[in-house]
Simulated assay, not measured.
Amino acid sequence: MSNILLAQQAAETAAQAVDINKGLAAIGYGLGAIGPGIGVGLIFSAVINGSARQPEAQGKLLGLAWTTFAIVEVLALIGIVMFFLAS
């Protein structure tokens, strides 16, 4: 009888650990999404400043901005994939 009770307690503890891991994964992704958000803001603010200072370079700056934007967004996508793998 005691072995059955121990097995039930172990199963309940494991189920609680999975619930905690899902919550921690959500918090981790939320914190991980802050970095790309700040990065995108900095990228496009630099493009706006550069275009205001030198309007003829706007095309070159926008090309660079979209390239770096894609790289930064890949980090956010990796974070959401890791969130789903953890939960």
Rank of each mutant, 00 (worst) to 15 (best):
I27A: 15
A11M: 08
G32S: 14
Q16R: 11
R53S: 15
I20L: 14
V18L: 14
L62G: 02
E73I: 05
R53A: 15
P55Q: 06
N21Y: 10
L6N: 15
A65V: 03
S87I: 14
E12F: 15
G28R: 00
G32Y: 01
L77W: 04
S51D: 13
P36T: 06
I78P: 03
F44C: 08
P36S: 01
A86H: 00
A7L: 13
L62M: 14
R53P: 02
A17N: 14
G30I: 02
F69R: 03
L31R: 01
I20Y: 07
A46N: 07
S87K: 12
L62Y: 11
A17Q: 13
S87V: 15
S45W: 08
Q9I: 15
I20A: 09
F84Y: 09
L31V: 06
L62C: 10
A7C: 01
G59M: 08
E56F: 09
A76N: 05
A65Q: 00
V74H: 00
G50N: 03
A76M: 04
D19K: 13
M1V: 03
A14W: 02
V47Q: 06
A11S: 10
A70F: 09
F83E: 02
A86L: 10
M82D: 09
G30A: 11
A15C: 13
A57K: 11
L85G: 03
K22G: 12
G37M: 04
D19Y: 14
L6V: 10
F44M: 07
T68P: 00
Q16P: 10
L61T: 04
M82P: 04
E73M: 12
I34M: 04
A52C: 05
A57G: 06
A46H: 04
L75M: 12
A57W: 04
V74Y: 07
K60W: 04
E73F: 03
V81S: 04
S45D: 08
G28D: 04
S51L: 08
T13N: 10
A7D: 13
L85P: 00
L61S: 08
L42S: 05
L61F: 15
F44T: 06
K60Q: 09
A11C: 08
